[in-house]
């Protein structure tokens, strides 16, 4: 299981250990915990590729019977 709070761990490392280690911990944060905001252009382009066309009709037609 991956641990959460990568950012916090990284912060602690900066305070407690040398700069070198901090740099490596930081790159780990970026590698494992990249945020959407850091990759936004790429994601926005990809959304355009997969987003269903005729959005208005599609969403309007999405009608279900009520469930539980």
């Amino acid at each position: 299981m991956k641990k959460q709070g990568k950012k916090k761990e990284a912060k602690k490392t900066v305070d407690e250990k040398g700069k070198e280690e901090a740099a490596s911990a930081k790159s780990e944060v970026v590698e494992k915990g990249k945020k959407i905001s850091e990759d936004l252009d790429n994601i926005m382009d990809k959304i355009d590729d997969v987003l269903e066309e005729n959005a208005e009709e599609f969403v309007k037609n999405y009608v279900q019977k009520g469930g539980q």
């Binding site: 991956k2 959460q4 990249k34 790429n42 959304i47």
Partner: peptide, 15 residues
Amino acid sequence: LYYLLCKEGLTERIA
């Protein structure tokens, strides 16, 4: 779209 983000490594997984 959730899986689009997943593929790009932008979601935190447990399993």
